[in-house]
């Protein structure tokens, strides 16, 4: 309800934001605030100063660049939901509620790397690329290298995730989610995508410390075999009061089979 007190700063451009971050290492970026503010209100996070990037127009919106879509990191879940992007609109529909979707951003979610967030599975299955700018200039990180641990992405302090590049040539996709009854975050979410070359990429979120590819599933499907069970090892998963690791492993199997069935 009441965060610890903090300073408030605002940036209007990426350059301005990067300069501010370089100058003041205490600055914490705030985008839609829908992961950061809840943590601040519970005083789990107590940043001394915030840099509001909501006003940076060049980080908003969805454009087409050849066989890729380019999505600004500050595009809201609601705008993603209404877009022609592959898979992401379906996933955005599973994120929170209309208020969360009108304010929370795709870049904020992906940079935050919440282990229960929905987008990371989709990002892995789609094989998106992350465009990150920092003091050393711009770099591109592939989805497979983006999620590094619990609440840990490739975006470093002092950097901004500015855009996401999504292949526009996929053939089919599906996302299956089992929601936590209280938070509605993913207990398990499984994303599958059939790419232009007909190969399938698949990933899961929610069950482990971060989102992972589902290699066993991909191997089976790409080898024209039936969907196996035991896709993930319960020993690698998280468990809590609502869902044990064993149950989550089972859910990965169930949701993967459903998602593959939907690919047709």
């Amino acid at each position: 309800m009441y965060p610890a007190s903090f300073e408030y700063h605002k940036a209007e451009s990426v350059d301005q934001a990067l300069a501010a971050l370089a100058e003041n290492p205490d600055l914490k970026v705030i985008a839609g605030g829908h992961s950061l503010l809840p943590a601040m209100k519970l005083r789990l996070a107590q940043p001394p100063a915030l840099l509001d990037i909501w006003g940076i127009q060049e980080m908003k919106g969805i454009t087409r660049d050849g066989d890729h879509w380019v999505v600004g990191a500050m595009t809201t879940h609601a705008d993603v939901l209404r877009s022609d992007l592959p898979l992401f609109p379906e996933v955005a529909g599973w994120v929170g509620d209309p208020m969360v979707r009108n304010r929370g951003t795709i870049g904020g979610s992906l940079a935050h790397a919440d282990p229960s967030a929905d987008y990371p599975a989709a990002a892995l299955a789609l094989g998106v690329e992350f465009v990150i700018r920092g003091p050393g200039g711009e770099r591109t990180v592939h989805a497979d290298d983006m999620f590094q641990g619990m609440f840990e992405s490739a975006v470093q302090p002092g950097e901004l995730l500015t855009h996401i590049r999504i292949p526009a040539t996929t053939q089919a996709s599906a996302y299956e989610k089992f929601r936590h009854p209280a938070s509605h975050y993913a207990v398990v979410g499984v994303a599958v995508v059939r790419h232009a070359d007909s190969s399938v990429r698949a990933a899961y979120t929610g069950a482990a410390e971060k989102a992972h590819r589902l290699n066993k599933l991909e191997d089976a499907v790409n080898g024209s075999q039936a969907v196996p069970t035991g896709l993930v090892d319960a020993g690698d998963l998280l468990g809590d009061r609502f869902a044990s690791a064993e149950y989550r492993a089972h859910l990965v199997d169930v949701l993967a089979a459903r998602a593959i069935e939907r690919l047709g």
């Binding site: 519970l42 936590h180 009854p181 209280a182 938070s183 975050y185 009061r241």
Partner: peptide
């Protein structure tokens, strides 16, 4: 019947003390 539970651990800590855990 289906959702809510104010569960405590054996040391008396409420395990569902926010709406992230307590399912309304």
């Amino acid at each position: 019947a289906l959702l809510e539970e104010a569960a405590y651990d054996e040391d008396g800590n409420l395990l569902a003390g926010t709406y992230m855990e307590y399912a309304m």
